[in-house]
Design a protein around this nucleic acid. Structure first.
Lengths: 216, 216
DNA sequence: GGCTTTACCGACAGGTTGTCGGTTAAGTTA
DNA sequence: TAACTTAACCGACAACCTGTCGGTAAAGCC
């Protein structure tokens, strides 16, 4: 039954990615705590030592996954912000939503992410996204201040507040009915306007458009 | 060396509290992940079976601790709110701060709480505090709306935003310099005023007073 | 073709949580 | 007060887990 241990050698980078792919998949399926390093090595078909040759610990694997998952969102956000011909409000909403990467493959991750087994994953993702995106949003708010679109006395803290709220509140979106989601989105837009001292409805429409597109 | 296993019988309630006391203490010292059930039973001097006679799992112990720790804060908040002769602004700040129970014995817990080992504890505390305190704050905002003090179109979501932000942002307070803390507090007050449509400085002073008192 | 580097292997130590049959104390009933 | 029931308690044990380590084999270099 047991396969003979055919020795297959790959480049470190290739093997690392393979491990991360499988680990991510497994964390989605069973949660971080429940997925064991044995699960990982069995599914790939490598030995225990191989795994620990590439990663020092299970937590380091998690860190690498978080890194990989967040990098894309943060890059996207920082690109969007630089498009100075796009209206600030649109850039702002796009940047905020860049972390809610609900698109494509990552969907299942976000379903599992709040389960208690994934508290650590959740915390690390949030931390990293906050560190990465808050400065970007902050810059945007400052730009809006100069343009006269916004009037925010504490851009950094406002950015923090927006990002923290959206990362926690939009986590639990899937449990809500469609009208609840709508209301939550409206409230979010309304509050951001207040927070940034923006004109009423200056953000409302563009935010609602994105939220509507989200669950089509 | 090994003590003879003198059999001591206690009432279920008494024993449960004993377990929670020691577990809480241990979680403070080593973090939730690092503190083992063996640590708990050894420190108390009971057998493995005894522990699992009273609690079904390690996580159930954690839940009970979270329950115990948050109950006090939530009770306090709901009491404060009922004092209708106290100005709303003071009640609001007091209720918000009721979760930052930095007073007395709980101090060390909050130092340890952000360490990765405690992600689960952190998440559960936050969840429970949010569920408990948000409705209370919401009621207060509605009251403020009626009095004309506030002007909030979405009281529930505003309460959520305030609580989520304060529970995340004030977590990492100990790493900051005193002036940073001050600025963060000022920004917080400013933003709450904006969020609730309150008059400028109507909350500022009372919030700053509390924050100043916090790290004396 | 020899040498060094590095990916790889799998047994193993030392830890973990949760289970379970059996034991003893406390309470209840007769 | 003696028999019986309930509930707290015990400790060995199974079934995991993570991380280590000496050794093997492929790849790259001289």
């Amino acid at each position: 039954m047991k396969e003979k241990s055919m020795r297959v050698v790959k480049s470190a980078q290739e093997r690392k990615n393979e491990i991360l792919d499988v680990a991510e998949q497994l964390f989605e399926e069973k949660g971080f705590d429940n997925a064991s390093t044995n699960d990982i090595i069995n599914r790939i078909g490598i030995a225990r030592g191989t795994l620990y040759h590439h990663f020092a610990s299970k937590e380091e694997i998690l860190d690498a996954i978080v890194e990989r998952m967040t990098k894309e969102g943060i890059c996207k956000a920082s690109l969007i912000v630089k498009e100075r011909n796009v209206p600030i409000c649109e850039r702002l909403t796009a940047a905020i939503m860049a972390l809610n990467i609900k698109e494509g493959a990552a969907t299942e991750v976000f379903d599992q992410i709040h389960r208690p087994q994934n508290a650590l994953l959740h915390q690390k993702m949030q931390e990293r996204l906050l560190d990465g995106v808050v400065p970007i949003i902050e810059g945007l708010i400052r730009e809006g201040n100069e343009t006269g679109l916004f009037d925010s006395r504490y851009p950094k803290e406002a950015a923090e507040m927006i990002m923290i709220y959206s990362s926690v509140a939009f986590d639990e979106l899937m449990n809500l009915s469609n009208e609840d989601i709508l209301k939550k989105g409206q409230a979010f837009a309304y509050h951001i306007e207040k927070l940034l001292g923006a004109k009423e409805n200056s953000l409302f429409d563009v935010i609602m458009k994105i939220i509507a597109g989200q669950n089509k």
